[in-house]
Design a protein around this nucleic acid. Structure first.
Length: 304
DNA sequence: ATCCAGGATGTAT
DNA sequence: ATACATCATGGA
């Protein structure tokens, strides 16, 4: 086992592990004390979180187990390998959060959200698990989406031994594509089961390449991702924002729709594409997705 | 019991 | 392009 620590004061701006990992961006981390999504921001976030990372070109050559917690201004980690580049990638420790906040327009809602969850960063999930996660997210609560991903890994993912425990990688496309709709329904995916199976097949066969979106402009990239089954504009925006690095993407979910109605009524242009453009400008353009994620987390936890 | 959750799809207009 | 019903599941 390798281990180490990253001092937060070496980053550009603050960092808060709990809000980053428990804000409904990623459903691929698990909390060792079993209290995922149950403790408030006042808790302080010293719990251990763990995930299994697939090989990521330029980040980690092999599949890796990573465990991390935040204590006394340090991001402590234990892993099967050097986790510094992995954590930097997954948790966007390379972002200049001070510059991002400075580039975000000041208004009462955004100011409160950024203050309440200071240090929350976007995530960079591996793309296939992110895609499946947000297909599963349709009409579903955050804690249940998380449970689905944990079950998918436990049932169909590779087993990995680390530090005396057994971990499960998120299933690769071929592993999910080989499952039947009925098997996936048994994991209580509901009507999302055929979407997951069909999309896994599109990925496994190479018929649609999610990474091809990286070569496209933002709105074309969003349209590209809707070729997957179970992926509309909203889920496509989530994949662009939480995996592919399109920080301007603003997923229009129910919480943001209500925020638009309550705070930015002029941004309601009727359709998704047009409203998306308006709120994206309202939130400052290039890093609008950061603002979106702060507002989502803030409102969902009772802010107003 | 009824409502609702990070929506998408098929169909009709 | 837009409006509508339909789609599972479980917790409040």
């Amino acid at each position: 086992m390798e281990q180490g620590a990253i001092p937060v004061d070496e980053l550009d701006g603050p960092f808060d592990l709990q809000s980053t990992v428990e804000s409904g961006q990623s459903y691929l981390w698990d909390r060792l004390d079993g209290k995922m999504y149950t403790t408030s921001a006042a808790y302080g976030g010293s719990a251990w979180y763990e995930t299994v990372v697939p090989p990521i070109p330029g980040v980690c050559a092999e599949q890796a187990v990573v465990r991390t917690r935040q204590v006394d201004g340090q991001i402590e980690w234990e892993s099967t390998t050097d986790a510094v580049p992995i954590l930097t990638h997954l948790l966007r420790l390379d972002d200049d959060l001070l510059a991002i906040e400075a580039a975000t327009p000041a208004d009462p809602l955004l100011d409160r959200a950024f203050e309440e969850y200071a240090g929350m960063r976007l995530v960079r999930d591996p793309v296939f698990p992110c895609l499946i996660s947000f297909i599963c997210s349709a009409q579903m609560r955050v804690s249940r989406i998380h449970g689905m991903q944990m079950r998918l890994a436990r049932e169909y993912g590779d087993e990995i031994e680390f530090d005396g425990n057994t971990y499960y990688a998120f299933p690769r496309p071929k592993q999910l594509a080989a499952r039947s709709e009925a098997e996936l329904r048994d994991l209580s995916l509901g009507y999302r089961a055929p979407y997951v199976q069909a999309t896994a097949e599109l990925v496994a066969t190479g018929e649609v390449d999610s990474r091809a979106a990286l070569e496209l402009d933002y709105e074309d990239a969003r349209k590209h991702l809707t070729q997957f089954v179970g992926v509309g504009d909203k889920v496509a925006d989530c994949v662009l924002l939480f995996s592919l690095g399109f920080t301007e993407a603003v997923p229009l979910d129910t919480w943001i729709q209500s925020a638009i109605a309550d705070y930015y009524p002029d941004c309601d242009r009727g359709g998704y594409v047009s409203t998306s453009r308006a709120i994206r400008e309202q939130f400052g353009g290039q890093f609008a997705g950061y603002a979106q994620t702060y507002v989502f987390h803030y409102l969902r936890n009772g802010g107003n």
